[in-house]
């Protein structure tokens, strides 16, 4: 019998995802769904490398981003699952290898850390990463 998930009223449960050699924790309240991306993904012309492409999920277009680009991970294979995040009215998909756990105490659980460095990848940090990537792309374009 599996242990009961330790949900607390004070803190939101976390979802532990893995991409390459890195793990990250995403607040589960910001996650809308996890789905397979094996159905197909269309690349966006002119998009940076961390933009995987567009996929259709439940009849809506979802932009998939490469999680490894934000975690600084090394991933040899393309991610098989996507974590659908809610950003207000918009939704973004983070491509991951798999969801390893959903646990309130995941942040403190030694087993989830393991040999991987675990990073909290909540909505704000994700946006900061995106802005940073965009700024870097703009600088590169400007320099070009």
């Amino acid at each position: 019998m599996a242990e009961k998930p330790q949900f607390s009223s004070a803190a939101s449960p976390l979802m532990v995802i893995r991409r390459g050699n890195r793990r990250a924790r995403i607040p589960i309240e910001q996650v809308e769904e996890v789905f397979e991306v094996s159905s197909g993904c269309s690349p966006v012309p002119g998009a940076p490398a961390w933009v995987v492409g567009l996929t259709s999920h439940h009849g809506q277009a979802v932009l998939l981003l490469e999680t490894a680009a934000f975690l600084g991970a090394t991933a040899e294979e393309s991610g098989r699952q996507a974590v659908l995040l809610k950003l207000g009215d918009d939704r973004l998909g983070l491509v991951v290898d798999r969801v390893e756990a959903v646990d309130q105490l995941a942040e403190d659980t030694e087993g989830h850390r393991g040999a991987f460095e675990s990073e909290l990848l909540d909505r704000n940090r994700l946006l900061a990463h995106i802005e940073e990537k965009l700024a870097s792309s703009v600088d590169l374009q400007a320099k070009a």
Binding site: P5, F7, S9, S12, P13, M15, I28, E29, V31, E32, E33, V34, F35, E36, Q81, V99, V102
Partner: peptide, 20 residues
């Protein structure tokens, strides 16, 4: 199993969203 796992995660997400 993978699909079941995915469904279980989504179910967990829904359960967390439902609160107590």
């Amino acid at each position: 199993a993978q699909q079941t796992h995915l469904l279980a995660i989504n179910a967990t997400i829904e359960a967390a969203r439902a609160g107590e």
